[in-house]
Amino acid sequence: MDLNDFRSAVTLLSLLLFLALMAWTFWPTRRQALDEAARLPFEEDGTP
Rank of each mutant, 00 (worst) to 15 (best):
M1A: 15
D2L: 06
D2H: 11
L3N: 15
N4Q: 14
N4Y: 04
D5G: 04
D5P: 06
R7Y: 06
S8Y: 06
S8A: 15
S8C: 12
S8D: 14
A9K: 14
A9M: 11
V10G: 01
L12R: 13
L12G: 06
L12I: 12
S14R: 03
L15P: 00
L15E: 11
L15A: 09
L15C: 01
L15V: 14
L15N: 05
L16P: 06
L16C: 09
L17Q: 04
L17N: 03
L17V: 03
L17D: 10
L17Y: 03
L17G: 06
L17M: 07
F18D: 01
L19E: 09
L19C: 06
L19P: 00
L21T: 12
L21D: 10
L21A: 07
L21G: 07
M22D: 03
M22H: 01
M22G: 07
A23L: 08
A23H: 05
A23D: 12
T25F: 15
T25P: 01
F26A: 06
W27S: 12
W27C: 04
P28E: 02
R30W: 13
R30S: 13
R31H: 01
R31W: 00
R31C: 01
R31S: 04
Q32T: 02
Q32P: 02
Q32F: 05
Q32A: 14
A33F: 03
A33I: 07
A33E: 14
L34D: 01
L34G: 03
A37K: 05
A37C: 02
A37V: 06
R39G: 11
R39E: 09
L40P: 01
L40H: 07
L40D: 02
P41C: 02
P41R: 07
P41G: 05
F42E: 14
F42R: 14
F42H: 13
E43D: 10
E43L: 11
G46I: 07
G46L: 08
G46F: 00
G46H: 03
T47Y: 10
T47D: 12
T47C: 07
T47M: 12
P48I: 15
